[in-house]
Write a protein that binds this DNA or RNA. Sequence first.
DNA 1: ATTACTGCAAAGGATTTGCATGTGA
DNA 2: TCACATGCAAATCCTTTGCAGTAAT
Lengths: 143, 143
Amino acid sequence: MTHTQHDYAAAIRKQGFRMTPQREMILDAVCEAGGHTTVDEIYSRLHARAPAVNRSTVYRTLEFLQEMHLVVAAEIGGQCVYEIAHAQPHHHLHCLVCGANIEISQEALVAAFAAIEREHGFAVATDHLVLTGACRACRETPA
Amino acid sequence: MTHTQHDYAAAIRKQGFRMTPQREMILDAVCEAGGHTTVDEIYSRLHARAPAVNRSTVYRTLEFLQEMHLVVAAEIGGQCVYEIAHAQPHHHLHCLVCGANIEISQEALVAAFAAIEREHGFAVATDHLVLTGACRACRETPA
DNA sequence: ATTACTGCAAAGGATTTGCATGTGA
DNA sequence: TCACATGCAAATCCTTTGCAGTAAT
Protein backbone atom coordinates (compact mmCIF):
# COMPACT_ATOMS: atom_id res chain seq x y z
CA MET A 1 0.00 0.00 0.00
CA THR A 2 1.23 3.45 -0.78
CA HIS A 3 0.49 6.94 0.34
CA THR A 4 -2.02 7.74 -2.39
CA GLN A 5 -4.62 9.56 -0.34
CA HIS A 6 -2.40 12.56 -0.22
CA ASP A 7 -1.39 12.39 -3.86
CA TYR A 8 2.10 13.62 -3.38
CA ALA A 9 2.72 13.35 -7.10
CA ALA A 10 0.15 16.04 -7.79
CA ALA A 11 1.59 18.28 -5.10
CA ILE A 12 5.03 17.98 -6.64
CA ARG A 13 3.87 18.52 -10.20
CA LYS A 14 1.81 21.50 -9.21
CA GLN A 15 5.02 23.18 -8.16
CA GLY A 16 6.65 22.40 -11.47
CA PHE A 17 8.72 19.37 -10.56
CA ARG A 18 8.63 15.69 -11.37
CA MET A 19 7.55 12.59 -9.55
CA THR A 20 10.07 9.79 -9.88
CA PRO A 21 10.27 6.23 -8.59
CA GLN A 22 13.00 7.28 -6.18
CA ARG A 23 10.95 10.09 -4.71
CA GLU A 24 7.98 7.79 -4.38
CA MET A 25 10.02 5.13 -2.62
CA ILE A 26 11.55 7.63 -0.27
CA LEU A 27 8.14 9.02 0.62
CA ASP A 28 6.98 5.46 1.21
CA ALA A 29 9.95 4.78 3.44
CA VAL A 30 9.26 7.86 5.55
CA CYS A 31 5.57 6.93 5.78
CA GLU A 32 6.31 3.35 6.80
CA ALA A 33 8.63 4.49 9.55
CA GLY A 34 5.60 5.94 11.28
CA GLY A 35 7.22 8.63 13.33
CA HIS A 36 10.74 9.94 13.05
CA THR A 37 13.25 8.39 10.69
CA THR A 38 16.91 8.94 10.03
CA VAL A 39 18.74 9.11 6.74
CA ASP A 40 20.25 5.71 7.44
CA GLU A 41 16.92 4.08 8.15
CA ILE A 42 15.47 5.48 4.97
CA TYR A 43 18.48 4.41 2.99
CA SER A 44 18.34 0.88 4.39
CA ARG A 45 14.68 0.43 3.56
CA LEU A 46 15.29 1.84 0.14
CA HIS A 47 18.36 -0.19 -0.52
CA ALA A 48 16.55 -3.41 0.37
CA ARG A 49 13.96 -2.68 -2.26
CA ALA A 50 16.07 -0.96 -4.90
CA PRO A 51 19.81 -1.52 -4.40
CA ALA A 52 20.81 0.85 -7.16
CA VAL A 53 19.49 3.94 -5.43
CA ASN A 54 22.27 6.18 -4.24
CA ARG A 55 22.81 7.79 -0.88
CA SER A 56 23.14 11.22 -2.40
CA THR A 57 19.71 10.79 -3.91
CA VAL A 58 18.35 10.28 -0.42
CA TYR A 59 19.95 13.48 0.81
CA ARG A 60 18.87 15.45 -2.22
CA THR A 61 15.35 14.07 -2.13
CA LEU A 62 14.86 14.77 1.56
CA GLU A 63 15.93 18.33 1.04
CA PHE A 64 13.64 18.60 -1.93
CA LEU A 65 10.67 17.15 -0.06
CA GLN A 66 11.22 19.64 2.72
CA GLU A 67 11.04 22.48 0.23
CA MET A 68 7.81 20.97 -1.10
CA HIS A 69 6.53 20.93 2.50
CA LEU A 70 5.85 17.21 2.28
CA VAL A 71 8.46 16.28 4.86
CA VAL A 72 9.73 18.06 7.96
CA ALA A 73 13.02 17.66 9.78
CA ALA A 74 13.93 17.88 13.45
CA GLU A 75 16.84 17.13 15.73
CA ILE A 76 16.93 14.44 18.39
CA GLY A 77 20.14 14.17 20.32
CA GLY A 78 22.27 15.54 17.54
CA GLN A 79 20.61 13.29 14.98
CA CYS A 80 18.63 14.72 12.12
CA VAL A 81 15.25 13.01 11.82
CA TYR A 82 12.50 13.28 9.23
CA GLU A 83 8.79 12.72 9.10
CA ILE A 84 5.81 13.29 6.87
CA ALA A 85 4.54 16.85 7.23
CA HIS A 86 1.27 17.13 9.11
CA ALA A 87 -1.25 19.89 8.71
CA GLN A 88 -1.03 21.05 12.32
CA PRO A 89 2.06 21.77 14.30
CA HIS A 90 2.75 19.12 16.88
CA HIS A 91 5.47 17.94 19.19
CA HIS A 92 7.02 14.73 20.38
CA LEU A 93 7.81 13.04 23.63
CA HIS A 94 10.88 10.87 23.26
CA CYS A 95 11.43 8.25 25.94
CA LEU A 96 15.09 7.92 26.82
CA VAL A 97 14.56 4.50 28.35
CA CYS A 98 12.71 2.55 25.70
CA GLY A 99 13.02 4.93 22.77
CA ALA A 100 9.27 5.30 22.34
CA ASN A 101 8.07 8.32 20.43
CA ILE A 102 4.77 9.84 21.47
CA GLU A 103 3.16 12.54 19.41
CA ILE A 104 1.34 15.33 21.22
CA SER A 105 -0.69 18.24 19.96
CA GLN A 106 0.38 21.85 20.10
CA GLU A 107 -2.28 22.52 22.74
CA ALA A 108 -0.26 21.22 25.66
CA LEU A 109 2.27 23.96 25.04
CA VAL A 110 0.29 26.97 23.82
CA ALA A 111 -0.25 28.17 27.37
CA ALA A 112 3.47 28.01 28.07
CA PHE A 113 4.28 29.80 24.82
CA ALA A 114 1.72 32.47 25.65
CA ALA A 115 3.32 32.95 29.06
CA ILE A 116 6.70 33.38 27.42
CA GLU A 117 5.28 35.94 25.05
CA ARG A 118 3.70 37.81 27.93
CA GLU A 119 6.83 37.83 30.04
CA HIS A 120 9.57 38.20 27.47
CA GLY A 121 7.82 39.60 24.41
CA PHE A 122 9.20 36.62 22.54
CA ALA A 123 7.01 34.93 19.94
CA VAL A 124 7.83 31.25 19.98
CA ALA A 125 7.65 29.77 16.50
CA THR A 126 8.80 26.25 17.26
CA ASP A 127 6.35 23.87 15.67
CA HIS A 128 8.11 20.56 16.05
CA LEU A 129 9.64 20.24 19.44
CA VAL A 130 11.10 17.09 20.94
CA LEU A 131 10.88 16.70 24.70
CA THR A 132 12.86 13.90 26.27
CA GLY A 133 12.06 12.04 29.43
CA ALA A 134 10.47 8.81 30.62
CA CYS A 135 7.19 7.40 29.33
CA ARG A 136 4.45 5.92 31.47
CA ALA A 137 5.37 2.30 30.81
CA CYS A 138 9.01 2.83 31.70
CA ARG A 139 8.17 4.71 34.87
CA GLU A 140 5.86 1.95 36.05
CA THR A 141 8.40 -0.75 35.30
CA PRO A 142 11.49 0.16 37.29
CA ALA A 143 14.60 -1.48 35.90
CA MET B 1 40.29 37.23 35.52
CA THR B 2 39.36 33.62 35.77
CA HIS B 3 36.49 31.51 37.00
CA THR B 4 37.92 30.80 40.42
CA GLN B 5 34.77 31.11 42.48
CA HIS B 6 33.68 27.73 41.29
CA ASP B 7 37.09 26.14 41.66
CA TYR B 8 36.80 23.88 38.72
CA ALA B 9 40.25 22.50 39.44
CA ALA B 10 39.04 21.04 42.71
CA ALA B 11 35.98 19.55 41.08
CA ILE B 12 38.14 17.86 38.48
CA ARG B 13 40.70 16.58 40.95
CA LYS B 14 38.02 15.28 43.23
CA GLN B 15 36.99 12.96 40.45
CA GLY B 16 40.53 11.75 40.01
CA PHE B 17 41.61 13.78 36.98
CA ARG B 18 44.03 16.60 36.37
CA MET B 19 43.72 20.30 35.83
CA THR B 20 45.82 21.48 32.93
CA PRO B 21 46.42 24.86 31.30
CA GLN B 22 44.41 23.72 28.30
CA ARG B 23 41.41 22.75 30.37
CA GLU B 24 41.60 26.00 32.26
CA MET B 25 41.77 28.04 29.08
CA ILE B 26 38.88 26.18 27.55
CA LEU B 27 36.77 26.72 30.64
CA ASP B 28 37.70 30.39 30.50
CA ALA B 29 36.72 30.57 26.86
CA VAL B 30 33.32 29.03 27.55
CA CYS B 31 32.80 31.40 30.49
CA GLU B 32 33.76 34.46 28.51
CA ALA B 33 31.35 33.59 25.76
CA GLY B 34 28.56 34.22 28.24
CA GLY B 35 25.86 32.04 26.78
CA HIS B 36 26.20 29.43 24.11
CA THR B 37 29.45 28.86 22.29
CA THR B 38 30.51 26.68 19.42
CA VAL B 39 33.64 24.59 19.02
CA ASP B 40 34.93 27.09 16.50
CA GLU B 41 34.42 30.06 18.78
CA ILE B 42 36.21 28.31 21.58
CA TYR B 43 39.02 27.27 19.33
CA SER B 44 39.45 30.80 17.99
CA ARG B 45 39.62 32.35 21.43
CA LEU B 46 42.03 29.70 22.50
CA HIS B 47 44.19 29.92 19.45
CA ALA B 48 44.57 33.65 19.88
CA ARG B 49 45.95 33.12 23.34
CA ALA B 50 47.83 29.86 22.87
CA PRO B 51 48.45 29.03 19.21
CA ALA B 52 49.89 25.62 19.94
CA VAL B 53 46.67 24.18 21.33
CA ASN B 54 45.19 21.63 19.04
CA ARG B 55 41.65 21.27 17.79
CA SER B 56 41.39 17.71 18.97
CA THR B 57 42.18 18.91 22.47
CA VAL B 58 39.16 21.16 22.28
CA TYR B 59 36.93 18.28 21.28
CA ARG B 60 38.37 15.95 23.88
CA THR B 61 38.21 18.56 26.60
CA LEU B 62 34.63 19.52 25.90
CA GLU B 63 33.59 15.91 26.11
CA PHE B 64 35.57 15.53 29.30
CA LEU B 65 34.03 18.63 30.86
CA GLN B 66 30.58 17.32 30.05
CA GLU B 67 31.35 14.11 31.90
CA MET B 68 32.54 16.22 34.82
CA HIS B 69 29.21 18.08 34.64
CA LEU B 70 31.00 21.38 34.31
CA VAL B 71 29.75 22.05 30.81
CA VAL B 72 26.51 21.18 29.08
CA ALA B 73 25.81 20.84 25.38
CA ALA B 74 22.75 21.62 23.30
CA GLU B 75 21.72 21.88 19.69
CA ILE B 76 20.69 25.06 17.94
CA GLY B 77 19.82 24.71 14.31
CA GLY B 78 22.00 21.70 13.78
CA GLN B 79 24.92 23.33 15.54
CA CYS B 80 26.32 21.89 18.71
CA VAL B 81 26.70 24.57 21.36
CA TYR B 82 28.25 24.53 24.81
CA GLU B 83 27.86 26.46 28.01
CA ILE B 84 28.90 26.37 31.63
CA ALA B 85 26.64 24.07 33.63
CA HIS B 86 24.29 25.94 35.92
CA ALA B 87 22.82 24.63 39.11
CA GLN B 88 19.23 24.99 37.96
CA PRO B 89 17.77 23.76 34.72
CA HIS B 90 16.94 26.59 32.36
CA HIS B 91 16.02 27.14 28.75
CA HIS B 92 16.75 29.49 25.91
CA LEU B 93 14.87 31.62 23.47
CA HIS B 94 16.77 31.90 20.22
CA CYS B 95 15.73 34.72 17.89
CA LEU B 96 15.84 33.60 14.28
CA VAL B 97 15.96 37.19 13.06
CA CYS B 98 18.81 38.77 15.01
CA GLY B 99 20.33 35.67 16.58
CA ALA B 100 19.81 36.92 20.13
CA ASN B 101 19.86 34.32 22.86
CA ILE B 102 17.63 34.92 25.86
CA GLU B 103 17.87 32.73 28.91
CA ILE B 104 14.67 31.85 30.75
CA SER B 105 14.05 29.94 33.91
CA GLN B 106 12.44 26.55 34.12
CA GLU B 107 9.34 28.11 35.69
CA ALA B 108 7.79 29.24 32.46
CA LEU B 109 7.54 25.63 31.39
CA VAL B 110 6.85 23.65 34.55
CA ALA B 111 3.11 24.11 34.14
CA ALA B 112 3.29 22.74 30.62
CA PHE B 113 5.44 19.83 31.70
CA ALA B 114 3.01 19.07 34.52
CA ALA B 115 0.13 19.07 32.05
CA ILE B 116 2.00 16.62 29.86
CA GLU B 117 2.62 14.38 32.82
CA ARG B 118 -1.04 14.50 33.76
CA GLU B 119 -2.29 13.76 30.28
CA HIS B 120 0.32 11.35 28.98
CA GLY B 121 2.01 9.98 32.08
CA PHE B 122 5.25 11.19 30.56
CA ALA B 123 7.87 12.73 32.85
CA VAL B 124 9.67 15.41 30.87
CA ALA B 125 13.34 15.56 31.79
CA THR B 126 14.49 18.15 29.32
CA ASP B 127 16.56 20.67 31.21
CA HIS B 128 18.07 22.72 28.44
CA LEU B 129 15.56 23.44 25.77
CA VAL B 130 15.97 25.87 22.92
CA LEU B 131 12.85 27.55 21.62
CA THR B 132 13.13 29.49 18.40
CA GLY B 133 11.09 32.46 17.32
CA ALA B 134 11.24 36.24 17.20
CA CYS B 135 12.37 38.46 20.04
CA ARG B 136 10.69 41.65 21.16
CA ALA B 137 13.08 43.99 19.42
CA CYS B 138 12.76 42.20 16.09
CA ARG B 139 8.98 42.10 16.28
CA GLU B 140 8.79 45.82 16.95
CA THR B 141 11.15 46.65 14.13
CA PRO B 142 9.60 45.19 11.00
CA ALA B 143 12.13 44.66 8.24
C1' DA C 1 12.45 17.82 -27.16
C1' DT C 2 13.47 19.75 -23.00
C1' DT C 3 15.39 20.03 -18.76
C1' DA C 4 14.77 17.89 -14.26
C1' DC C 5 16.69 14.10 -11.89
C1' DT C 6 19.86 10.40 -10.83
C1' DG C 7 24.16 7.71 -10.19
C1' DC C 8 28.81 7.80 -9.64
C1' DA C 9 32.93 9.30 -7.85
C1' DA C 10 35.38 12.71 -5.85
C1' DA C 11 35.61 16.60 -2.74
C1' DG C 12 34.67 18.71 1.53
C1' DG C 13 34.24 19.50 6.36
C1' DA C 14 33.80 18.09 11.00
C1' DT C 15 35.09 14.92 14.44
C1' DT C 16 37.72 10.89 16.19
C1' DT C 17 41.68 7.97 16.95
C1' DG C 18 46.57 5.92 17.53
C1' DC C 19 50.70 6.81 19.11
C1' DA C 20 54.78 9.04 20.91
C1' DT C 21 55.86 12.78 23.91
C1' DG C 22 55.14 15.73 27.64
C1' DT C 23 53.48 16.97 32.42
C1' DG C 24 50.57 17.27 36.71
C1' DA C 25 50.04 15.05 41.12
C1' DT D 1 57.43 8.14 39.18
C1' DC D 2 53.72 7.10 36.23
C1' DA D 3 49.23 7.45 34.68
C1' DC D 4 46.80 11.10 32.61
C1' DA D 5 46.79 14.59 28.81
C1' DT D 6 48.32 16.65 24.73
C1' DG D 7 49.97 17.38 19.89
C1' DC D 8 50.31 15.67 15.56
C1' DA D 9 48.83 13.32 11.61
C1' DA D 10 46.05 10.06 9.66
C1' DA D 11 41.65 7.91 9.57
C1' DT D 12 36.80 8.06 9.59
C1' DC D 13 32.25 9.62 9.11
C1' DC D 14 28.63 12.27 7.14
C1' DT D 15 27.17 15.24 3.65
C1' DT D 16 27.67 17.91 -0.59
C1' DT D 17 28.96 18.71 -5.39
C1' DG D 18 30.26 18.31 -10.54
C1' DC D 19 29.27 16.04 -14.31
C1' DA D 20 27.58 13.00 -17.77
C1' DG D 21 23.83 10.02 -18.72
C1' DT D 22 18.71 8.97 -18.07
C1' DA D 23 13.99 9.67 -17.89
C1' DA D 24 9.61 12.41 -16.82
C1' DT D 25 6.53 15.62 -18.93
